[in-house]
């Protein structure tokens, strides 16, 4: 059945906050086995869209399916296939890394022995074993991202939704995360992640969607979207940025 359904399908997702439109009808079809980048400037609605797609935020209108399971009508079926790393959301950070992984595994209804084995492996691969019993609250930003990723991967989901996985991560950890995600996609998984770092997206993604002001502006494979230009040029043109003329902020230079 996974062959017929897209890994993630969004139809007409919309959300307002206090009368202010955050997302104005997003349609998206993420093919299974793709590495999908959701691009957009700050405040474009990336986090809102992904939150609605994974069941963290109830949409005003529209629907979302994970491998054919309606996220809002059949949450149990959808959430089993789904691994999520939200951005700007705290972990249960008064636990140590190992405790946190065990907690997530058991919450997912996994067998304790499997949890132990996978947790040890993940901590080892993500170089978090050295932290020992340090509480996650005392981790550095990069370590927090890594333990968050480990929590999302632990139960072996078919679809991984990551909000800003490379934000505030040092190059070494970023390379490690990239490596793990690429292996996951080669192994048949699907990754959807949001970012505003062009190089990462160009290096990793097979598909790209550009979101601005709550709507999808460009969508397709990386080649289709960028054409013969660089992704950054396309992005700035779509989003519409302004360039400094050198007149303003003159008082900054002495």
């Amino acid at each position: 059945m996974t062959a017929e359904h897209p890994a993630l399908a969004l139809r007409g997702l919309a959300k307002q906050f206090d009368g202010k439109v955050a997302v104005a009808g997003v349609d998206l079809a993420v093919p299974a086995g793709s590495f999908y980048g959701l691009l957009g400037p700050n405040g474009a609605g990336k986090t809102t869209t992904l939150s609605m797609a994974v069941g963290l935020l109830r949409p005003d209108a529209g629907a979302a399916w994970v491998l054919g399971h309606d996220v809002w009508a059949d949450p149990v079926g959808a959430k089993q296939l789904l691994g999520v790393m939200p951005d700007g959301v705290r972990l249960f950070d008064r636990l140590s890394g190992a405790e946190l992984l065990a907690y997530h595994g058991l919450l997912r209804g996994m067998d304790p022995a499997v949890v132990d084995q996978r947790a040890a492996e993940l901590l080892d691969v993500l170089a978090l074993g050295d932290a020992g019993r340090t509480l996650v609250v005392d981790y550095s930003a990069g370590m927090k991202k890594k333990i968050g990723l480990a929590c999302a991967l632990l139960h072996g989901p078919r679809l991984l939704v990551l909000d800003e996985p490379f934000e505030a991560v040092d190059p070494v950890s970023a390379a490690l995360i990239r490596d793990i995600l690429q292996r996951y996609v080669i192994g048949g998984g699907t990754v959807v992640f949001s970012s505003h770092v062009m190089e990462v997206v160009e290096r990793l993604c097979s598909h790209v969607a550009i979101l601005a002001a709550g709507t999808i502006k460009r969508v397709g494979t990386l080649g289709e979207v960028r054409g013969d230009r660089s992704l950054e040029q396309v992005f700035v043109e779509v989003v519409g940025g302004r360039t400094a003329t050198g007149e303003e902020l003159a008082w900054l230079s002495r």
Binding site: L95, S96, A98, P112, D116, A119, A120, G132, R133, L135
Partner: peptide, 19 residues
Amino acid sequence: SAGPAPARRGATGASVAEL
């Protein structure tokens, strides 16, 4: 800042037992 946190070492073999 809560200051640098000392890394508390300990066996991390059995995650579930630790929780």
